[in-house]
């Protein structure tokens, strides 16, 4: 396959990652949200493998496999177990309504495009154009963490942010050193476990995962 077509496929995958980020913003059901997160992980891992092929960096294949196993299989499984154990069946609760968050998301995409354009002009990598998509994914993850009430959706927002960071690393510098990537991957895994335990405790203390309830932690003076 020629390099040109691979480059095209890679930017298409980047567009799909961005699309899944928006799909996560639009999702009302928590099960569907986890499915979309799985898709994002899958697109990310394929994209990483393709960048590895274009740049001829073999460690990217390993990190692609790592992404696949961690973000498509392990993390969604943990999240799934969590929502079953916590008996979360309700829809995602938002602070700002969904069409408004979508518009904010579009604004963030434009913002990150303007922010990364000078970097794109300096860079010589083939994958430089996906950098702004990566930044936008990070920001949309952040937006999701801000605009959701329930702790579990905030956790998914955090994981989506990490996906964005990963894409940024592969597109801007052809991936971080493998040791660092391994460390980050383990970090995310451990974070998911800690989040799980944390969510259990929030749930048992407040009978709800609504983070607004945490205001009650303040001691009355």
């Amino acid at each position: 396959m020629s390099l040109k077509i691979l480059e095209q496929v890679n930017s298409f995958l980047a567009a799909l990652v961005l699309l899944t980020a928006f799909a996560m913003l639009a999702q009302r059901r928590i099960n569907a949200l986890i499915h979309v997160f799985m898709w994002q992980g899958l697109f990310l891992s394929i994209s990483t493998a393709i960048v590895g092929f274009i740049a001829n960096k073999h460690h990217l294949y390993l990190s692609s496999v790592l992404t696949l196993s961690l973000k498509v299989i392990v993390l969604p499984y943990i999240l799934h177990v969590l929502i079953v154990r916590l008996k979360i069946r309700k829809e995602v609760e938002t602070i700002v309504n969904i069409p408004m968050t979508m518009l904010l998301g579009i604004g963030l995409v434009i913002f990150s495009y303007h922010l990364t354009r000078p970097i794109m002009e300096l860079s010589t990598f083939i994958t430089r154009s996906t950098l702004s998509v990566a930044l936008a994914t990070v920001m949309i993850g952040l937006l999701m963490m801000i605009t959701r009430k329930k702790a579990i959706t905030q956790v998914i927002g955090f994981l989506a942010m990490e996906n964005g960071l990963f894409l940024a690393a592969t597109s801007a510098t052809y991936g971080m050193p493998f040791v660092v990537e391994l460390g980050v991957a383990l970090d995310v895994l451990i974070a998911a476990f800690i989040f799980g335990i944390f969510l259990f405790h929030i749930n048992t203390t407040f009978d709800s995962l609504d983070v607004n309830q945490m205001a009650r932690l303040k001691e009355d003076i």
Binding site: L18, I106, S129
Partner: peptide, 9 residues
């Protein structure tokens, strides 16, 4: 998104 990805990608 289509229009933005025309400029970005």
């Amino acid at each position: 998104l289509g229009m933005l990805s025309f400029f970005i990608l």
